[in-house]
Computed example of a mutant assay.
Amino acid sequence: MRPSRIRAALAVIAVAAVLTSVGGGTAQAWQGWPDPPAAQSPAPSLSSGTANHCLDPEGTDLNALLSIREQIVGPPACRVAVAMKPWVSAFPSWGTAADAAGAVYPAGYTPSLPKPMDDFILKFLGVRIVQDIGTPQEQSYSFGPEVLRLVVTEEGLPFATFASPALPGLTPSPHTSTVYFRMSFEHCDGAETSRTDDCLPAGESAYTGNTPFEVLKKQG
């Protein structure tokens, strides 16, 4: 399920989720992110100097919820980071139909495993995160399935959520982060029948646009 079409259910997930680690990584339960300008990202917690707190719209501390010590960059309210401090790239989750019985697929597609989420996990090879794409400062980081955790809502809907290992600190200036998925074979989510919105192609493909964020000098 493409990020733009995943319903905003973070409040439900944060309270009632069952998180299962896949590959021992850390991840975020965040869905359907818009891309507001980095300047709109609040930064009152940056001056604390001792703790990072990425808060969702309901006030849930995602660092505490997911045991991530580094500053999280990605959710709309977390688009500001402190210069030269490690940071974690978080990006929208991938949802599927709950089970094989309710799954529907585009014509010609057959999943490798009956349950759509099992099929996604089987085929998911990892991600490539490109920082400042298209600029002289461009950097690329590749990770495997350790970026993934599973989240199940109260309604039984499964989501694969994602967050990178800690990335090197950045210099003060505007930056962007762009995420590419790597899949061994085509995967479709079983939710609807659009290949554009409901499927991920084999190989590497863009998963997000260029997410803007701001890196500021440490205050105090």
Rank of each mutant, 00 (worst) to 15 (best):
residue 79 R to N: 06
residue 85 K to S: 01
residue 202 A to G: 13
residue 169 G to I: 09
residue 89 S to D: 10
residue 131 Q to K: 10
residue 113 L to W: 01
residue 145 P to W: 02
residue 156 G to Y: 01
residue 122 L to W: 01
residue 193 T to A: 10
residue 187 H to D: 14
residue 164 S to E: 06
residue 92 P to W: 02
residue 172 P to E: 04
residue 91 F to V: 03
residue 130 V to D: 08
residue 58 E to N: 12
residue 105 Y to H: 07
residue 220 G to Y: 07
residue 188 C to H: 11
residue 105 Y to I: 12
residue 129 I to T: 13
residue 18 V to S: 12
residue 11 A to L: 07
residue 167 L to D: 05
residue 200 L to V: 14
residue 186 E to V: 14
residue 50 T to G: 04
residue 47 S to H: 02
residue 130 V to Y: 03
residue 61 D to S: 06
residue 155 E to M: 05
residue 120 F to W: 14
residue 214 E to Y: 04
residue 139 Q to I: 01
residue 86 P to C: 01
residue 98 A to F: 00
residue 28 Q to L: 15
residue 154 E to A: 10
residue 31 Q to Y: 04
residue 119 D to M: 10
residue 170 L to N: 03
residue 97 A to V: 07
residue 97 A to D: 11
residue 94 W to I: 15
residue 107 A to R: 13
residue 101 A to L: 11
residue 112 S to Y: 00
residue 158 P to G: 10
residue 163 A to P: 07
residue 46 L to Q: 06
residue 210 N to A: 15
residue 66 L to E: 08
residue 217 K to Y: 00
residue 114 P to R: 06
residue 220 G to N: 10
residue 37 P to M: 07
residue 95 G to S: 13
residue 206 A to I: 13
residue 103 A to Y: 03
residue 20 T to F: 02
residue 208 T to Q: 11
residue 25 G to P: 07
residue 36 P to E: 03
residue 158 P to W: 08
residue 81 A to G: 09
residue 24 G to L: 08
residue 197 D to T: 06
residue 116 P to Q: 12
residue 172 P to H: 00
residue 96 T to I: 12
residue 23 G to N: 06
residue 14 A to K: 09
residue 35 D to K: 04
residue 102 G to K: 05
residue 99 D to F: 02
residue 69 R to K: 12
residue 60 T to R: 08
residue 176 T to C: 12
residue 116 P to A: 13
residue 24 G to D: 10
residue 168 P to I: 06
residue 166 A to D: 04
residue 163 A to G: 14
residue 208 T to P: 08
residue 75 P to L: 08
